[in-house]
Nucleic acid binder design. Sequence first.
DNA 1: CGCATTAGTTACGATAGGAGAGTAAAGCGA
DNA 2: TCGCTTTACTCTCCTATCGTAACTAATGCG
Lengths: 125, 125
Amino acid sequence: MTHLPYDPYNRNCPTRKLLDRIGDRWTVLIVGALGEGPQRFGEIARRVDGVSQKMLTQTLRGLERDGLVRRTVFAEMPPRVEYALTPVGQTLREPLRALEDWAREYMADIEGARDVYDDAAVNVA
Amino acid sequence: MTHLPYDPYNRNCPTRKLLDRIGDRWTVLIVGALGEGPQRFGEIARRVDGVSQKMLTQTLRGLERDGLVRRTVFAEMPPRVEYALTPVGQTLREPLRALEDWAREYMADIEGARDVYDDAAVNVA
DNA sequence: CGCATTAGTTACGATAGGAGAGTAAAGCGA
DNA sequence: TCGCTTTACTCTCCTATCGTAACTAATGCG
């Protein structure tokens, strides 16, 4: 039998929560960083400027659970842990990069639109 | 002169916040809904199952301020307000639909990965 | 006169996120 | 031997955001 059609417009569909995860700010940046190759915890932290250790751990754990990231612990001291995209995780690179590229491309337009909107609000007030 | 390169990996870059907005759960679904044509407030609310009036208003206001959505008020009673994507808003449809499609395509894989992960955790515990 | 309709707004409790300090375990220099 | 360093977390506390649900304005209709 085929599965029910997944539909994020339905509140009970699991794709609804999945969208939350993959559209998440840190997920976009972390997957983007790992797209360049496997990296250690600290390397990702430095690459993704501003991410707290807590959120980095939390996001990586979620991605690992979802089978998008593989976590490898080396029994050394100080500890060494390497993170890498799985084959499924690789398939996320393109849609997320598209989002990143969109943000870069239209940022200026949007800042302009905000100025116009905010000026109009001031004039009315 | 060209503008500074926008880089969401830098915590102070405005694209960082922009990523938050466009990756947002409600934004993805609302832009998706409006991709089918202009719609009234209530129509969007019915299409995007589970969105509260508060979040719908808030998200639409943000999209309007960013110049991605145009809001048209008709002076009637009861009120009628129509929302439509602007040309810039249209350019968001493709990357967001790619996200939606990805979620639909890989949902089953991910649910499988979660089962494996959670079973392993139980065995260790 | 009172109820229905539409597009909101407001108040409030729950939850998620950020900041910052604390932890384990081994290496290494004084 | 003491204690400082490194790495990958974990914990606590505080604030911001989100969801729920009730309330509102303004008109038509029975």
